[in-house]
Design a protein around this nucleic acid. Structure first.
Lengths: 360, 360
DNA sequence: CAGCGCAATGACACCGGTTACCAGATCGGT
DNA sequence: ACCGATCTGGTAACCGGTGTCATTGCGCTG
């Protein structure tokens, strides 16, 4: 008698005919061992690439595994290893484009390794945030965790991961941890590129709508922007800086304030593309033409940047690459072979139609 | 001697001090059984909500589980159940917004159930597509799979899932399967709404840029659109219909063709927002004002729809809801309690600035 | 009061791999 | 030919749960 609740599952609904039962069942390590005339331990050694197996034996076992299309059961392996083959992707970024790209990159990096990706959005402001994460990490005995901004900047989570002995890689705009666990995005470089581009076009009154000051990336982008201006003999005028919230609405509001100044800036560098679109809106509201009256530069190169009119000049972040690199970093940390050595992550400026020469 | 490859893992690197070892280890079912003075089988019964446990016993066991913050190991359970607690989300939609929303919805539905979500992008055109999927499903012994368009329309995959006895839910614009496994998106309803909206604004020459004809949704949206026009005593003129590819560029191309006709349409219904933006571009190229000279309606309500100027009238698809409903459908199929009964998925028209009265 | 049926529980094997430990085989050196 | 060192492979226990089946205790019936 089955003790489980009913549930009209289709499983096991097949007829009792046991004819091809043997051949239908997935092969186990015992089947391989029997056919190869070795012990299951030896098969296990082959699976785990132990060096203590004679070449002949290894080949024989490998051949049979291939023949039966044998795939070791990750659950059983995980149980014995006291560890799963699940990599956790924990994120709290509201930008879908960002999340999907990061996720895709991580999957690129994981491909072929036998590791699966379990995704987990989170809310850092929630009371049970840490408890929730602890449950996820510990219950699933995660192989490792990959963190992207802004949750990557959370020290409570980092501390939890260390305490639970769970390997992780943090992607962030500044180094917060030991090098092995960090992938730095060089946001300052992107800021500097935006600054040089606008300065070289002759702009001298340049505004900046920043992200929330609680984000590291905000400071990095601003710092780089200031440095870029400095290279051209200018300096960032705080009068023309406003703190936004990485949202469209905040972009509108901040840009409207900047445009209302006398003299007004002739160019605005927005901390992300979303806010840059808000700047477009504010410019339209004020009757300013882009880029004739006002040049605009964004950050991220969201797909929308190429779709709006005029198309948006912006700093492209290689998010997908970052995901791939982060995944491989994690694997290498854990002794899994991965094809590629470390790469540098560098933002690049994509010049489109929203930026032009300074008026006058 | 350790046979594994090195890998400078931090795991197990802690000092040998065994003082708090006992209390640090996660409790197992044996610990609970010992403290509750019952057999582990009885604890197992409590975990699985078997009805054959005396109320007293259940309470005692539950109390101890809570006290020790015991969480059964999903790997061990899965091994014994011959099934994992992983739900697979297989997708091939290129639209990040769509993917993230669907994913978020599925996670909403799964929340608190103990099921985790493993994501898997795929390429239906690849030679090893089915083999790849088979590996994923069988190796991980997936609890179930959720499919969104367009991979949800793939019959080879559906057949594979049936053969492997893996439960699934398909989200699609038409019913392709038994009701339990299907969540229908009623795309025709959305098409009809667009048609009525434009007809009521006085448009009589209405163009339509469709998606690829290989997609079911394309036919549904077009069918609904035609029905909506019919309700207003009009009919869809095939002269004003073009097949696009759900991409920006195809939107530009098709709209340019339509605009070049004499007489030209005064309104265009695009099969998705991406193409609708292409229509904007074509209108600008032709010197037409939106919506004064040309009204435009899209489909999806992508975030960009509210950001462009003029903002885009479009049909909103409740993708996140669809994800939640799909997840719960899957759970209910498998006898897992889920809080909510079935809901209907209905697109809604969001009227913005890109559509207006017919000129003249 | 014996006999029955059923709720409640436990003993034990098993899921598919792994490690710990041991024993047999191989091999070069003397 | 003998011996210890070095490989190689086997056995048993274990990872943390579940299935099967037997056993216990109890209220009810005849």
């Amino acid at each position: 008698m089955n003790e489980r609740k009913p549930g009209k599952s289709r499983r096991g609904a097949s007829r009792a005919g046991a004819e091809s039962e043997q051949s239908r069942r997935r092969p186990t390590i015992n089947d391989i061992a029997r056919l190869a005339e070795v012990s299951k331990k030896t098969v296990s050694r082959v699976i785990n690439e132990s060096p203590f197996v004679k070449e002949d034996t290894r080949e024989k076992v490998t051949a049979i595994m291939r023949e039966l299309a044998y795939e070791p059961d990750p659950q059983a392996r995980g149980l014995a290893f006291r560890r799963s083959f699940l990599v956790g992707f924990i994120y709290d970024n509201p930008n879908p484009q960002y999340v999907v790209n990061a996720q895709q990159g991580i999957l690129d990096g994981l491909k072929g390794s036998g590791l699966e990706l379990a995704v987990r959005p989170c809310n850092r402001a929630a009371d049970d945030f840490i408890e929730d994460m602890r449950g996820f990490i510990q219950r699933q005995k995660l192989f490792g965790v990959i963190l992207f901004p802004s949750v990557s900047e959370d020290e409570r989570l980092a501390e939890l991961l260390q305490r639970l002995d769970c390997p992780y890689v943090r992607v962030a705009s500044v180094s917060l941890d030991e090098a092995d666990s960090m992938l730095v995005t060089n946001d300052a470089v992107g800021g500097a590129q935006a600054a040089r581009h606008l300065a070289d076009a002759g702009h001298t009154r340049i505004g900046h709508v920043t992200g929330p000051l609680t984000f590291r990336s905000t400071h990095e982008r601003k710092r780089g922007f200031a440095e870029g201006l400095a290279e051209r003999g200018m300096s960032l005028n705080e009068t023309w800086v406003r703190e936004g919230g990485y949202t469209f609405e905040s972009g509108v509001r901040c840009a409207a304030e900047l445009i209302a100044l006398t003299p007004r800036p002739t160019a605005i560098f927005a901390g992300n593309d979303e806010m840059a679109l808000g700047v477009y809106q504010a410019a339209r509201d004020a009757g300013l033409r882009v880029p004739a009256d006002l040049s605009i530069v964004g950050y991220d190169d969201a797909p929308i940047a190429a779709r709006v009119w005029p198309s948006l000049t912006t700093v492209r972040l290689p998010i997908r690459d970052m995901g791939r690199i982060a995944a491989r970093k994690l694997m290498r940390q854990e002794g899994v072979e991965s094809p590629e050595a470390d790469e540098q992550v560098r933002p690049t400026l994509v010049v489109r139609a929203s930026s032009g020469d300074a008026p006058g």
